[in-house]
Design a protein around this nucleic acid. Structure first.
Lengths: 256, 256
DNA sequence: AAATGCCGTTACATAGAGTGAAACGCATGG
DNA sequence: CCATGCGTTTCACTCTATGTAACGGCATTT
């Protein structure tokens, strides 16, 4: 038997080992690999080939993998369906997507919408700028909360303690310059729904090379305007100001 | 033990029962249900509550489900990531999406791109018209090949026999009026890549009420123009005509 | 107040499912 | 022509996955 650490965790966590192994097979697919051979899958998940073959067969029978004619495997269409269902469960796509397009057009940069998911942030929607370059976050990407402007804003309006987060709660905005990825900088604003509950953050993202403080100052107004519009559409109250001026201290928002 | 028919199939197919059961748990989520209770999941997959609880725990540990504070379950962010990877594996999104927007704008209807996946067609990309109404296909939806214009066109250029398909191969287009869903009509054109290999079909879709033969005649030219442009971008050869006139018989395309 | 029903969860004994080593035939390439 | 690596099948063994039963909590009903 394998006795891998992950198996023990699965069992002790009250889970099913075979299931987590199968999901691990899906997880080894990354942006680079369109199709993977059985032996390659087995190597990446550190399981025997017969075991991975059985798991892959079951994944394929359910539409989560597809077996190519050359016996390699690729991800299956069921994942697209469920990915859309995950997205649409938030019931904000109809509002967010058009505004992302406007935001991208107004700033000339890429625009994205992030939600918090446990101790991570997920890029729920994204509109690429025509001049988009390099390695940026894609829809569905999971990134850390403590790196990058969107993450910090999510933390701030999730009630995080600290001077930095106090300041973000006052400004209703935050910018980072190459913090998570040296080549990527971003500016983010919170979005609320009815009851002033945090829904997520709207962000403008661009390459650090052209995304300096002057650019941030330029992008702040359209971002705030559109974030406020989104907040209004979702039933939340706006912060009554969308200029680039330092906002007055606003105590309406209480940490959770 | 359960001895369900699906379990026997899984085993005899050389698969892993527990895995297919877990995937069945994901499959019970549909557009309506944002979050589901454990008991409801157990009912839908016809398994005992302890079993489903263990499966759900494993699904959640891997990010395929999320446990809400009220102990209900919803789909997890990993599905969005893998759904995007499935899409991007086709390496056509950068070309298709802008053209779908143009097509939707030119016709005033929704536009979609379908690919064949075994004996089904999958809506790989979709751009909703501003006047979109009712129940239409969504990105990731799996639909039958033998119902609806996109399905028939995929069959035709997949080499299907029959007078109907011979005609579609001549016209490079086909329209259906409420065939799959009485309220939905559509017009579809094939798209090819290098070597004249079928990539998928471009389609215009609208409510049957306003999608009559006159509308199809109006939409045919922009659809063909944009389908040809896409084919050109993907390295395929176009059919040398994009008018609404009956095309001459063209024998370049051989059934697979 | 008591009772009922349904929820999510835990414990446990048992059946049998999942497992990997070994061996197979088949390409591929040195 | 051998060597290597591929996908696949077989098979005996172990331990995993399973459902029943029972628990406590929470509404709603009686």
């Amino acid at each position: 038997m394998a006795r891998a650490a992950l198996d023990i965790e699965a069992r002790e966590g009250g889970g099913v080992i075979a299931v987590e192994r199968a999901l691990a097979v899906l997880d080894v697919f990354t942006v680079g690999d369109q199709s993977l051979a059985l032996a390659e899958l087995a190597r990446r998940v550190a399981l025997s080939k017969p075991t991975v073959l059985r798991l892959a067969k079951s994944l394929a029978r359910s539409g989560y993998l597809v077996r190519n004619d050359d016996t390699t495997w690729r991800l299956g269409p069921k994942l697209a369906r469920l990915g859309m269902l995950y997205q649409s469960g938030f019931q904000i796509g109809d509002y967010v997507q058009p505004l992302l397009r406007r935001l991208s057009q107004a700033t000339g940069e890429s625009a994205a919408f992030y939600v918090r998911e446990a101790d991570m942030r997920v890029c729920l929607f994204r509109v690429d700028s025509p001049q988009s370059i390099g390695h940026h976050a894609r829809t569905g990407d999971m990134l850390p909360l403590n790196r990058g402007a969107p993450g910090h804003v999510l933390l701030a309006f999730g009630g995080q303690q600290g001077d930095l987060y106090e300041k973000i709660r006052q400004d209703f905005a935050y910018a980072t310059y190459g913090e998570r990825d040296p080549e990527v900088s971003s500016l983010a604003c919170p979005v609320f729904r009815i009851g002033q509950q945090l829904v997520g953050v709207l962000a403008v993202t661009g390459p650090t090379s052209r995304f300096d403080e002057a650019a941030v100052a330029r992008h702040l107004e359209p971002l705030k305007t559109i974030a406020n519009e989104l907040t209004r559409q979702l039933g939340g109250k706006t912060d009554n100001q969308n200029s680039t001026h330092r906002p007055p201290i606003d105590a309406r928002r209480a940490p959770a």
